[in-house]
Design a protein around this nucleic acid. Structure first.
Lengths: 243, 243
DNA sequence: AAAACGCTTCGGCCACGCCCGAACCATCGC
DNA sequence: GCGATGGTTCGGGCGTGGCCGAAGCGTTTT
């Protein structure tokens, strides 16, 4: 019977030390690359690749391609809860104090400016872009589900209030059948959380440049926030700006 | 670091098919013998013994000796919850419908009378004894924790109202320093749930015989409920009697 | 006392699965 | 186009751990 076999199999997947370490590293909800997970588990990338394939095939992890990177994250909140309960029991049993430091695993480039704000293809990324997306999600203006994001009514109004030409975005996404969706989430390689991409992301980005809120820093994809942007974006998105 | 190792180890313990089956068989809270668990897992008793030793040493299971039997049960509610969450995830993943029939695993002697009511050493056992204990627990008259039960104030009054001589019990438990506790839970081999043992259990049993509520059936340890007992016990413990 | 039963320990067999080296695609930067 | 980097696939080595037969211990039963 599948029942018992899937039960044992699921636990066995978590039971391997290497996989357990990888899952633990993902427990904060971020998405990590195979290499980073390999490092977290103390194994070589090719071994990690095998483990990740198993975990993904079993449905414990979800994977999203992004350029030459592949970001892995826990597939569902239920998985996180299961890991949580296992950790809880494990803590009770053997090792007294546990659960504490889940080291954030040094990640991404050290370039401060890049981490703060940059372009990602045609849209914005970095801490500020992620903060903008999360703020909109909190306000119920956007739905950031992993496959396919969508503006709500409030979100449309908010964007228009900012001066973003959503009609242009709509037209752009309608132009070609393939390759251009209206609004989608994009995984940030420094923050490991989604920001806004797709036609909406592109137009939002253009608006920020057009209004003089952001300015490209030459020779890099980093982006600087202008004094005007500090005011406008800070107010609209309740952003905390970099010193 | 212990943190991660205990985490993986705990999951690995659940991850073995044989152990997973045994744990699953214990998920309803009953306590089973090694042989029954071996049968449930489809392995030989000696193999099961090894697994049970691991699970017990790790603290996932608790074991209580009783004569030549050893009853194994989940150590804590937390363990049950962990298994629950794993089953939940496993159900979501592979096998569509799961969780259903957890077959009660044919167990114990088939003798109907014995299962209904009998003596266990010097106290009562069987469905009726378990029902009595559980009723008292529900009413807050007794605490049935696995190691060491205790009557509450309400329980003392209730027992005395039944005509049970608790002073005699107290004296008996005081007589010898070792071997005779005032009140303790005893695992029932047919119901697999605790009933009342210790001096209190013994005196309660004697009272039932003295009052003519119960009668020993000759040549066996089975016990019959008399018409008088049907009335008295039925009312006091809200018992549903056997046809 | 002897036999039956429950359970455990010991010893050896066997295989599953983890791991890495090497080679092979895909994507990005120049 | 080229190298560099991230990632996967393939092959074989190797150890850990499950499994059972046989023997031993403790308890219960007759």
């Amino acid at each position: 019977m599948l029942s018992t076999s899937m039960f044992a199999e699921t636990a066995a997947l978590v039971g391997d030390p290497a996989r357990a370490n990888m899952l633990g590293a993902l427990m904060d909800g971020r998405a990590l690359t195979a290499k980073e997970l390999a490092q977290a588990a103390g194994i070589t990338p090719q071994t990690a690749s095998g483990h990740l394939a198993q975990l993904t095939r079993a449905g414990l992890l979800a994977m999203e391609r992004q350029g030459r990177h592949r970001y892995h994250r826990l597939a569902t909140p239920g998985v996180a809860q299961m890991l949580e309960s296992i950790m809880s029991v494990a803590a009770d049993l053997g090792g007294e104090g546990e659960a504490r430091r889940r080291r954030p695993a040094v990640t991404g480039p050290r370039d401060k400016a890049l981490r703060e704000a940059r372009t990602c293809y045609d849209h914005l990324a970095g801490r500020i872009a992620v903060a903008m997306a999360e703020r909109m999600a909190e306000q119920g203006q956007i739905d950031l589900s992993p496959d396919g994001a969508a503006l709500t009514e409030d979100g449309v109004a908010f964007m228009q209030g900012l001066g973003v030409d959503l009609e242009a975005a709509r037209a752009r996404s309608a132009r070609r059948g393939s390759g251009r969706v209206f609004c989608r989430p994009c995984l940030d390689w420094s923050e490991r959380r989604p920001h806004i991409a797709g036609a909406v992301g592109a137009v939002l980005c253009e608006t920020c440049f057009a209004k003089g809120w952001l300015r490209r820093m030459q020779g890099t994809r980093a982006v600087a926030v202008t004094p005007a942007g500090r005011m406008a974006l800070g107010r609209a998105f309740a952003l905390r700006m970099e010193g």
